[in-house]
C-alpha cells in the first residue's frame, strides 16, 4: 500500500498560519510539537510532518474505505526525531497497530512524502514535478497526465487506454480499457507542485 502528499512551501506560507493559537495542538502530538519547536527550519518541519500524516492517512482511508479527520491518530516515532533523520521517518497508528514508513524529498520549494505499508515484493515508482499554472483544474489534469504517461511507458500500454477514476471515498484507481487494475496509485498536488506514487506487484 502506498500514499503520497506534496506541499508547495511558498503557497503553504501564504495559505496557512501555523503559528495561529491552537493550530499545532490540533494536528501534532506533544513530541511532534517539540520536534517542530526545536527545528532549525520550523516551517519546513511543520510541513514535513503534515505531509507525512497526509500520505499515511491516504493509505488508511483506502484500507478502511472511510474518510475522517484525525491527524493526531497518526503519530511519528520519537526515536527518529532524536536521530534527526527528517527524510526517513516511521509513523504509527496506535488504535490499529499499523506501522508506516514515510520517505520525504525536502527542497527549498516543496516537500514530497511517500508513505508505505507492507511493501515487500512490490515495485514503487514515485515522482514530483513543477506545474507552471497553479490553478486547481490545471494541477488536477497535469498530475494525472504525468502519472498515466509514466505508467504507460512502464507497462507498454497505450496512454489512451488508461484512465484514473476515484471511488465514492475519493480513492483513485487505475483502469485499463475499463478494467480496474491491481496497481495502487496515489496522486497529490498543491500550488505549483504535483506528485504521485505507483505500487505494482
Amino acid at each position: 500500500m502506498v500514499g503520497n502528499d506534496i506541499v508547495d512551501l511558498q503557497l503553504a506560507r501564504k495559505e496557512s498560519n501555523w503559528q495561529r493559537p491552537r493550530f499545532l495542538e490540533k494536528i501534532f502530538t506533544e513530541e511532534e510539537r517539540h520536534f517542530i519547536h526545536t527545528a532549525n527550519d520550523k516551517d519546513a518541519a511543520v510541513w514535513l510532518l503534515w505531509s507525512g500524516k497526509e500520505s499515511v492517512y491516504k493509505i488508511i482511508a483506502r484500507l478502511e474505505k472511510r474518510r475522517f479527520f484525525a491527524p493526531k491518530k497518526i503519530a511519528f516515532c520519537t526515536d527518529d526525531f532524536s536521530r534527526r533523520r527528517v527524510d526517513d521517518l516511521t509513523a504509527k497508528v496506535v488504535s490499529t497497530g499499523y506501522t508506516f514508513s514515510t520517505k520525504s524529498v525536502v527542497t527549498d520549494t516543496h516537500i514530497h512524502t511517500v508513505a508505505q505499508l507492507d511493501n515487500i515484493n512490490k515495485k514503487l515508482i514515485k515522482n514530483n514535478f513543477y506545474i507552471k499554472k497553479n490553478n486547481y483544474p490545471t494541477q488536477h489534469k497535469t498530475t494525472r497526465q504525468h502519472l498515466l504517461k509514466n505508467y504507460a511507458k512502464m507497462t507498454n500500454l497505450a496512454v489512451a487506454d488508461l484512465r484514473i477514476q476515484k471511488d465514492e471515498n475519493q480513492i483513485p484507481y487505475l483502469y485499463h480499457q475499463n478494467e480496474k487494475q491491481s496497481t495502487v496509485i496515489s496522486i497529490s498536488h498543491h500550488g505549483n507542485y504535483g506528485g504521485y506514487a505507483i505500487l505494482t506487484v
Binding site: A12, E15, S16, R22, P71
Partner: peptide
C-alpha cells in the same frame, strides 16, 4: 486544502 480544515475547526 486539508491543512485549511484545521483553520475551519479553529
Amino acid at each position: 486544502n486539508s491543512a485549511n480544515l484545521v483553520d475551519i475547526v479553529l
